[in-house]
Amino acid sequence: MKDQITQDEYFAGEEQREEYRRFRDLMDGLSEEERALLYEKYVFRLSYAEMAERHQCTEEAMRMRVYRLRKRSIQTVKTKQEDGI
């Protein structure tokens, strides 16, 4: 693993890097549990069933929570982008 992983490796343009910085701010502001949900879904690629078991809720409740988080994340990134234009 490299010592320093820069945003340049992921995002080619300044606009994408700006979006990532907004996403990072959003992530830093989330609760521990909300962050954990996003890690489990998008980094560890757990299924809704596995996540529901970990968090002791139903699969559908988990699906709804992740959907809300996803929508909130995308909206935050995109809305600020529009405001900035």
Partner: peptide, 23 residues
């Protein structure tokens, strides 16, 4: 698209956090 984009953002975020922790 939103799912894939969020996965990309999360991957970058996780790597950045991991690198910071390692440092």
């Amino acid at each position: 698209y939103e799912d894939a984009y969020l996965a990309l953002l999360m991957d970058a975020y996780a790597r950045e956090k991991a690198a910071a922790l390692l440092k």
